[in-house]
Amino acid sequence: MTRFEQELKNNVFVSSFCTRCDKHVWPPSDMCNSCFGNVIWRPVTRTAKLIEFSSKGDEVFGIVEFEGSIRVMGRIMTASALQIGQMLNLTECNFDGKAKFVLAPIV
């Protein structure tokens, strides 16, 4: 299991970060995709902007963006209408063979 997966399993969302280039390396990797230097693992701020969404039955899913650059697909728990660009909280993350991200609107 990778460091990214281990942390996710503990409900901690980390991303690889290059201190030399001062940027996230996403998707996670052991090396920076600009300078090929080593990365550190840094927690990602748990608020995200809604980029796009759809649904499958009652399950709403979408693309969200963390820290202006890290985009993932996650489940969105909401009882009200969503707006593109609105901010969401990462309420849960996990790893069970697949990465899992669960978000909800900031109220």
């Binding site: 998707p27 796009e52 899913f61 993932v72 697909m73 489940r75 899992k100």
Partner: peptide, 16 residues
């Protein structure tokens, strides 16, 4: 592709 989270099947990207 971990960025797809639990939505790995192609129907999900098509839906986006």
């Amino acid at each position: 592709d971990v960025s797809r989270g639990q939505y790995k099947h192609p129907i999900y990207w098509a839906s986006m």
